[in-house]
Amino acid sequence: NQESVVAAQLIPINTALTLVMMTTRVVSPTGIPAEDIPRLISMQVNQVVPMGTTLMPDMVKGYA
C-alpha cells in the first residue's frame, strides 16, 4: 500500500511547506504520494490544513 503525505500539524493558509509539517501514512483515499515530499518543500497550501489531514493535489499551489 502506498503512503500519502499527511499534515503533521495545523498548516495555516498560504504557508510554505517544510519537512517538519508533513508525515506519511497509508490512507484512503490516497493523496499526494510520499515520494513527492521533496517536491512539496517550499510550496504553499491554498487552504487551512488541519493536523492529520491528507494533502491532496488541489490543496498545494502549483502542484497539480
Rank of each mutant, 00 (worst) to 15 (best):
T18I: 05
Q44W: 06
M56R: 10
N46P: 02
P12H: 09
V45K: 00
Q9P: 00
Q9H: 07
T15G: 07
T15W: 04
N14T: 05
S4R: 02
Q9W: 05
V26R: 10
T54C: 03
T23S: 09
M51T: 06
Q47K: 12
N1R: 06
S28V: 14
K61R: 14
M59A: 06
P29D: 05
M56N: 07
K61C: 03
S42K: 14
T18Y: 03
P57Q: 12
P12T: 12
P50L: 08
V26F: 10
E3Q: 10
M59Q: 04
Q47A: 07
A7T: 08
M56V: 12
Q2F: 12
V49K: 00
V45D: 00
M51L: 12
G31S: 03
A7Q: 01
I11P: 00
A64S: 14
S42D: 09
A34H: 06
D36N: 11
Q47V: 05
L19N: 09
M51V: 12
P57V: 06
V5R: 01
A7M: 03
V27G: 12
G62K: 15
D58K: 11
I37N: 01
V49F: 02
D36L: 11
A16D: 05
V6L: 11
T53H: 10
M22T: 03
G62W: 08
L19C: 04
V27T: 11
P12K: 06
Q2A: 09
D36P: 00
I32P: 01
K61Q: 13
P29N: 13
P33T: 10
M59C: 03
D36M: 14
T24C: 04
Y63K: 02
V49A: 03
P50E: 10
D36Q: 15
Q47Y: 07
D36A: 11
N46K: 13
T54Q: 04
A34R: 12
P57C: 04
K61V: 11
Q9D: 08
I37E: 04
N46D: 06
Q2R: 14
R25M: 09
E3P: 09
S28T: 15
D58P: 08
M59K: 02
T54F: 02
V20P: 12
L55G: 00
A16Y: 11
V6C: 04
G52C: 04
Q44H: 13
K61F: 09
M43I: 08
M56Q: 13
G52L: 05
R39H: 11
M51F: 08
T18A: 10
T24I: 11
P33A: 09
V5L: 05
V20N: 10
P38L: 12
A34V: 09
L10G: 10
I13G: 15
S4A: 03
P57K: 13
T24Q: 15
Y63D: 04
N1G: 10
E35W: 10
S28P: 03
P29L: 04
S28R: 05
M51P: 10
A34Y: 05
V5K: 00
E35H: 14
D36I: 06
R25N: 08
G31T: 02
V48Q: 14
T18K: 09
E3T: 14
G62M: 11
R39N: 10
N14I: 02
I41T: 10
P50H: 15
M22K: 00
P33C: 05
G31R: 04
M21R: 03
T24Y: 06
L19D: 08
V60N: 02
T53E: 13
I32V: 11
L55C: 02
V45S: 10
M21P: 00
I32F: 04
T54N: 02
T53S: 06
G62H: 05
I32W: 03
V49M: 04
G52D: 10
K61H: 11
T54P: 05
T30L: 13
V48G: 06
Q44N: 11
N1M: 15
N1Q: 14
S4Y: 06
N46L: 06
G62Y: 06
P38H: 12
G62N: 15
V60P: 00
A7D: 01
S4N: 02
G62R: 15
G52F: 11
Y63E: 05
L19Y: 11
D58I: 09
S4P: 01
M56C: 04
V48L: 14
P33R: 14
T18M: 07
E35F: 14
M59H: 06
A16R: 10
L17W: 01
A64G: 13
Q47T: 11
V5H: 01
P33D: 05
A7E: 01
T23R: 13
T30F: 13
I13V: 15
V60W: 01
V20A: 08
V26I: 14
S42G: 15
